[in-house]
Design a protein around this nucleic acid. Sequence first.
DNA 1: GGGAGAAAAACCTTGCCCGTATTCTTAG
DNA 2: CTAAGAATACGGGCAAGGTTTTTCTCCC
Length: 179
Amino acid sequence: MNLEVVNAVGSGDLGIEIDLNRLATDVKEVEFDPDKYPGAYVRLEGVEPLITVYRTGKYIITGSKSDEEAYSCRKQFLKLLTDEGVLGEPEDEWFSMQNYVCTGELDQVQNLNALAIGLGLEYTEYEPEQFPGLVFRPDDTPVVILIFSSGKVVVTGAKDIDMAEEAFQSLKEDLDALV
DNA sequence: GGGAGAAAAACCTTGCCCGTATTCTTAG
DNA sequence: CTAAGAATACGGGCAAGGTTTTTCTCCC
């Protein structure tokens, strides 16, 4: 309910080892600096999400606004590898979404100090000196919700959108019960 | 002083955690 | 930058545990 996905992360496996140095020299869309990070970055033309590939063949796609966008990006990535002769049969590898980051808004402005107590100090972290948002970790879900005094919220850690929606809905019910 | 055994110290391997990098939003 | 999440991997550092080596005690 009224949550907007702002970032989706997915991961997959090509099933074969990749020579990142060769890939970086052969393909202009690939950036690789092993001294800074072991993964190689692939920025496809006209594609928003970023693909990070590793020597092992595992890869992650970050920055998608939806799972459709992530899957589309993956498709183009596989095509690129196939065209480059790196991949033979791209059918047998998997890909799945790992995390959704969403933004939402609560009806009224929040008093975070009171909210921390209301939601339970054992489930919340609020240190305005360090970070302006209240971190809420419900015990019945792996989802984490950041609540700001403006009423804006960030829901993260969900494996799927329903999980995020449920956690947000649950938070709203908790808030109604507190009034 | 030398041999046996135990205790201590030195050494080395393993494992785990952290930082490194990426995305994206929120807001002091 | 601070904080959160998730996947991914690699080097470094520290701790712990295990093994080897050195030292020391006891007694003949």
